[in-house]
C-alpha cells in the first residue's frame, strides 16, 4: 500500500503540556468482582501506548471506560485536563457529569472494536458519514468526499456503496477504522482489532494502522496480541496483571528485557 496522507485528520486542539489522558485512582467493579482498583496513569499528547497482559487483567475495561461504554465505579478520568464522566466538586465530593457534558468530551475519542460493529443496515459510505453529518454537522457532500478519501486510504475506494456484510472481515475492519477516523478523533482506542480476523487478513489492517500512526499525531491506546506491531508503532508498553500496571517501558526494552517475572512468563507464552 502506498503511504497515504492522513495528516489532515490529525488532531491539534488542547494545550501542550497537559497530558491527553489521565486516569486518577480509577476503580471498576462488576458486581462483587473488582477489575480495577486505584489505577492511575497518564498518556501524553500524540503518544501511542500498548496495553498488554493476560485476559481478565483489565486492559479492555480501560478502553471501554474511556469510551464511556462502562460506568466508572470510582476515581476520575481526564481528557485534555477536563473530567470525562465524573468531577471533583468544589466541596471535594465526586459528582457525575450530565450526559450532555459527557457527550461533548466523548467526541474527541474514537474506537475500533474487535467485532468491527459496522451498521449492517447502512452501506459502507453511509457508515462512515453517519456521525460526521449527524454529530459534527458536516454537509452530506463534505462528509462524502472526506469519507471517499478515507476509503481510498484504507484501500477500499471502490467499495463505498456495498453492504458491510458483503466484505471480508479485514475489509470490514478497515471500514471501521475509516469510520472512526472520519470523526477526526484526538484519541483512538483499538480493542484487539485483529483478534477476530483470519490470519491472512491481519496484515492489511495492521498496514492501515501503521499508516495512521506514521502520518498523524493521534493519541492511541491499543490492546493487542500482535507484539511485533506493538513494538513498531507504540512509544510505550504497559503490562497489566489483575488490574494493576506491573511494568511499563519502551517497547524494545519491554520485549527484549522484561523485568517482572509475570511479564517474562506472559511474553514467553505469547511470543
Amino acid at each position: 500500500m502506498s503511504s497515504p496522507d492522513l495528516s489532515k485528520f490529525a488532531a491539534t486542539s488542547g494545550t501542550s503540556g497537559t497530558p491527553r489522558i489521565v486516569f486518577e485512582d480509577v476503580e471498576k467493579r462488576f458486581g462483587k468482582n473488582v477489575v480495577l482498583n486505584g489505577l492511575g496513569f497518564e498518556v501524553a499528547k500524540g503518544e501511542r501506548v500498548t496495553l498488554i497482559g493476560p485476559s481478565g487483567s483489565g486492559k479492555t475495561t480501560i478502553l471501554r471506560l474511556l469510551m464511556t461504554l462502562e460506568e466508572l465505579s470510582g476515581g476520575y478520568i481526564y481528557v485534555d485536563g477536563e473530567p470525562l464522566t465524573h468531577k471533583k466538586a468544589d466541596n471535594g465530593k465526586r459528582t457525575a457529569l450530565r450526559p450532555k457534558e459527557v457527550a461533548l468530551i466523548r467526541r474527541r475519542i474514537g474506537m475500533v472494536f474487535q467485532q468491527f460493529n459496522l451498521f449492517p443496515n447502512m452501506s459502507v459510505i453511509e457508515n462512515i458519514i453517519e456521525a460526521p453529518v449527524h454529530v459534527l454537522g458536516q454537509s452530506k457532500e463534505e462528509a462524502r468526499s472526506k469519507a471517499q478519501s478515507l476509503l481510498d486510504q484504507v484501500g477500499l475506494g471502490d467499495r463505498g456503496d456495498e453492504h458491510p456484510t458483503r466484505l471480508s472481515g479485514g475489509q470490514q475492519q478497515r471500514v471501521a477504522i475509516a469510520r472512526a477516523l472520519a470523526m477526526e478523533p484526538e484519541i483512538l482506542l483499538l480493542d484487539e482489532v485483529t483478534s477476530a480476523l483470519d490470519p491472512e487478513l491481519v496484515g492489511d489492517v495492521l498496514g492501515v494502522l501503521r499508516d495512521v500512526a506514521n502520518t498523524t499525531d493521534i493519541t492511541m491506546l491499543l490492546v493487542t496480541h500482535e507484539m511485533q506491531f506493538a513494538r513498531d508503532v507504540s512509544h510505550r508498553v504497559m503490562m497489566f496483571d489483575e488490574g494493576h500496571i506491573i511494568e511499563e517501558s519502551a517497547p524494545d526494552a519491554m520485549f527484549s528485557n522484561p523485568q517482572h517475572e509475570r511479564t517474562k512468563k506472559f511474553l514467553q507464552a505469547i511470543l
Binding site: L69, Q115, M183
Partner: peptide, 14 residues
Amino acid sequence: RSGQWEAATALSLP
C-alpha cells in the same frame, strides 16, 4: 448485538 449500541456511543451519535 450490543456492539451496535457501543459503536453508536463510540461515534457519539445522540
